[in-house]
Design a protein around this nucleic acid. Sequence first.
DNA 1: ATCGAGCTTCCGGCCACCGGAAGGAGCCAG
DNA 2: CTGGCTCCTTCCGGTGGCCGGAAGCTCGAT
Lengths: 273, 273
Amino acid sequence: MSPAQGAREKPAGPSVTGRVLGILSAFGPGAEALTLSGIARTAGLPLSTAHRLVGELAAWGALERGEDGLYRIGLRLWEVGALAPRSLGLRERAMPYLEDLYEAMRQNVQLAVRDGHEVVYVERLAHPEAVRVFSRVGGRMPLHATGVGQVLLAYAPAPVQEEVLAAPMAALTPRTITDPSELRRALAAVRREGVAVCDGMVDLLALSVAAPVRGEDERVVASLSVVVPSAGAEPRAIVPAVRAAARGISRALGAPSARRRPVGVVSPGASGT
Amino acid sequence: MSPAQGAREKPAGPSVTGRVLGILSAFGPGAEALTLSGIARTAGLPLSTAHRLVGELAAWGALERGEDGLYRIGLRLWEVGALAPRSLGLRERAMPYLEDLYEAMRQNVQLAVRDGHEVVYVERLAHPEAVRVFSRVGGRMPLHATGVGQVLLAYAPAPVQEEVLAAPMAALTPRTITDPSELRRALAAVRREGVAVCDGMVDLLALSVAAPVRGEDERVVASLSVVVPSAGAEPRAIVPAVRAAARGISRALGAPSARRRPVGVVSPGASGT
DNA sequence: ATCGAGCTTCCGGCCACCGGAAGGAGCCAG
DNA sequence: CTGGCTCCTTCCGGTGGCCGGAAGCTCGAT
């Protein structure tokens, strides 16, 4: 896999806690199963130290040792992780809407939140025959290059936006936005339209349409997107469905702006079905 | 709260690692957000010790501190937990089949694995209008009282079966099986039929139909179930759909017995994996 | 104003942690 | 069979990180 992968390091103080967390950090996408020495190497620990700590983690269930001798993340840790409100709480309430959207589009549907300068995918429904999409549940991507990312960035606190705009932006494809002022315009458009449409920015063959999901304090807490094949895609047919689903989730989360009320207010120019 | 709640304790050696894990154990269903002193109390740690450790965990992202001052499980820990092969790997491949089953039944669909003497729910699709079901993703239930549990137990290693049969079995409802010999018969029936049908064992109003999911070494690695209202349920209409979905997942996992081609002829050489 | 609950910081003593080293198990090549 | 390799496991003495009582702080409730 990509060689630059494993180096997602932290200050990782020499405290015991830091070492334990370092061991957990050794696992990642593309490194789901490791040998003891592999862990020690990646976490920068002496073998005997790693042996002791890993042993304790395995006894508790944070790690599991397969019959092949490799260590993997244990069910118990997954269980605890499932309590994270930004994944499970959100997911539980969003699921029905994701289902419906998935069922209607028969394409990739994604739900993501922001963590620092990255987007983290919290849920994903992928049709087997849909575009191969370069993300996975629990995976991370840069904010500037993805539909969900642009939405999350557009509504992020100003300091975050400035930091991202100031930093160099990687180009995943030739069509990825890498120019700060261009991104600034894109974000303004997202705020104006309430959706982001990204064509070929992650993968030249894929187009994504994303909309914001709001929490009870009206802040944008997540973003929802549909990814379809770029060729022949008709965003106008997709936008309403994505907007509606995002609004549904916002309502389920208690966002005041998504209250049910007899409304005839529709965005101007809504001619589509 | 119920006093027996927080006591899901471990030997919890006084090692630093043990204390850290103890802190994580303080969180659980019904305790997603805790104060620092709450954590200290539950984990049995002096306040200052808890303060230091929690601080380190929060700095890394294993815990997050909300604006209300409460600590919750952090996104980073969820991310690591998502790497657990028994959840994500299984989930990813099972999802399409769960979708279809859910779509067809419009009821609760659950996927679970066994951990020790309990079943752990790995995925769950719940129709908003379906029977309220007493389980959640990441939740645990006893093996003897649930459909998925009986399936997992029926195909578990003999020692596990004996241990469960020897231990006292809690009755969740008057219809829960609590008699060892009765359970033994039920397990035999499951092995014979390839499905478990549990009526009113968890909740008098719910009936569940469960089937085994096999991995590439032909062992039962998970169990799939549908939960419907007990009243007027017609198991015969459900069993085939559940069996089919379970078989589909088994095939996706590479189980030989679920190969598309009817068995009988071992094609020579051709499929040498 | 008084109280109490919860949080944060500080610091000296002590003990749990560290990690080098030695030994064993499995594998491959010669 | 032997040698060399990688990976794992266990042991043990020195020491530096951890422990936790105590003091001070910020709330909000009485």
